[in-house]
Amino acid sequence: MIGATFRRITPQLIILGIVLLLNFLVFPGFFSIEFQNGRLFGNLIDVLNRGAPVALLSIGMTLVIATKGIDLSVGAVMAIAGAVAASVVTGGGGWFTALIAALAAGLLCGLWNGVLVAFLRVQPIVATLVLMVAGRGVAQLITEGKIMTFLNEGLIFLGAGTILGLPTPIIIWLAMGTLVTFVVRRTALGMLIEAIGINETASRLAGINSRVLLLAVYLISGVCAATAGVIVAADIKGADANNAGLWMELDAILAVVIGGNSLLGGRFSIVASLLGALIIQSVNSVILLSGMPPEFNLVIKALIIIVILVIQSPTVKHALYLLRASAGSAVPEAHAVGPRNSPAKETRS
């Protein structure tokens, strides 16, 4: 069980290691972590901290994508959740009320997407596009188009505070990742989600209630996005409806893809997606630390990501597998190591 999980995330771990090493090369102090002002302070901590929003989004996105869906609305839901939280505290509410209200807003958004996809059978990309476009408008209505700043210490703590020296967002995404992984793997939810992602007709005929499951994944995605939205707003002590979570849905999808999860649904790994999110943030870190002019940002990011995706492509994987097989002394066990599209899939009964 543990061995299988480890084997599944090995490519992501290797890539993360390489990108971190790249960070070290452009900035030798990268791995140093100090303790100052009651908090851990260092670039590695920044990667974990700044990766929080995409990491949180990638949790929900992994499940949605596992059902063959996609949730384009997460960025907009972040903006809505941030706006809701900010308006609650500026209206005199406490941080906890604000948090609950924001999460409720996220659930509501998830419900909207889920009903469109599961019950009205709208294609996920279209269904969530609606909220992606309209959601930001809703957030702007709540903030009246300005950055709604707040000074509520409790709320700010969620984005900028520390627990035992670790920035709160790190704790939050780790906790959320663990919780969701635990729920989907310790119950049958994960397997049933994979089943409908792989073959929805067959799953329905096997008696699986695919509607409820589809609804569930969009709800989870909504809550994850709302949490990310609260963190982002708390971090800057203000809800910036225009920019909060802007284009972040694409980073979240990318994290899931770098995590080796198929956009065609089916088998998924939340841990691998979280590693994907960290890889993206590490790439951002390379760019920031390198000191290159910002005109190069997108080019560098694109290059690194192309390399990552090419390494993960089935063809390259297969080539590497053959290389290993021909160079290695023992012929590897066919089903454990063989890549998905290798001819090894032919079995003889």
Binding site: N43, D46, R50, I147, V232, D235, I236, G238, D240, N242, N243, A244, L246, S285, L288, L289
Partner: peptide, 12 residues
Amino acid sequence: FTRAQGKVVMES
């Protein structure tokens, strides 16, 4: 031009 990115980049 955003507050969030301003903070992130200043950190680096």
